[in-house]
Design a protein around this nucleic acid. Structure first.
Length: 247
RNA sequence: AAACUUUCGCGGC
């Protein structure tokens, strides 16, 4: 059983939803009873390839099986899939369904929903939900919440909002990680705020965050798009000097 | 063992 879950996970990463379907059928022919975990892994393989309809029909099928009750992982996954498709009515249905099943959403569930609002440009909804989570003290935002909030304000050009929320979340005790700082650099790069982008890089070097391939890609990309060739070369040379390999 | 975030790809709609 664990092997099947591992295989579904691998097929998900390789974007092979059809192969996952076949594996599931084969599993059943071999007399293996599906479980919550197996269905969740299968659904994950589907949603990783954005096969929402296939995931929805499989989810329905899952709920008709004995001993295959969706759990918090299953619901979070389905909520993310519906969120990514901007089907917020379906998200609401799933949240209600979870509630009646006695399953409470957690920070991961809300992170998916917050990100979906952000991606759709519904920044007010995103911010209001975040504020209510903070004010109700149900969940502490975590570093994933922070990174996603910063990215979404940045994505829509709201740099000041992004900086305000960075300060606020930091003051609430959320730590920054390499992804946080890469996100800030990416936004500053897109906005052509190169001095801020470089300031983040220097901060990272000063405080011993190891810049990774993504960090350098972000900066090279930003300078490249602006046609700033010698700055681009400087970053490239720094990357070689630091022993980070390009991809 | 299975769910959430940053660059670029690949895949899907």
């Amino acid at each position: 059983i664990g092997i099947y879950i591992r295989l579904f996970e691998m097929l998900g990463h390789c974007k092979q939803p059809e192969a996952a379907t076949h594996l599931f059928q084969q599993m059943r022919r071999n007399g293996c009873e599906p479980s919550t975990e197996v269905y969740t892994a299968l659904l994950s393989a589907y949603t990783r390839s954005n096969r929402l309809n296939l995931a929805l029909s499989t989810f329905k099928q899952m709920k008709q099986q004995p001993d295959c009750f969706p759990n918090i992982y299953t619901y979070s996954l389905m909520i993310k899939a519906c969120s990514d498709a901007c089907d917020f009515d379906l998200v609401r249905t799933l949240l209600l369904e979870m509630g009646s099943a006695g399953i409470e959403p957690n920070i991961v569930t809300y992170n998916s929903l917050l990100d979906a609002y952000g991606k759709a440009g519904l920044l007010d909804k995103m911010e209001n939900l975040l504020l209510s989570l903070i004010n109700n003290k149900v969940f502490k935002p975590n570093v994933w919440t922070q990174n996603m909030i910063l990215k979404n304000f940045g994505k829509w050009g709201q740099v000041t909002k992004m900086e305000e929320w960075y300060e606020r979340l930091t003051s609430l005790g959320v730590e920054s990680d390499i992804t946080t700082l890469n996100t800030l650099m990416s936004v500053y790069g897109k906005e052509r705020l190169f001095e801020k982008m470089i300031a983040v890089m220097e901060y990272m070097r000063r405080y011993h965050y190891n810049l990774d391939t993504i960090s350098y890609n972000i900066m090279i990309d930003a300078f490249g798009k602006a046609g700033m060739v010698q700055q681009m070369h400087k970053i490239f040379n720094l990357m070689k000097f630091e022993g980070v390999r390009p991809d």
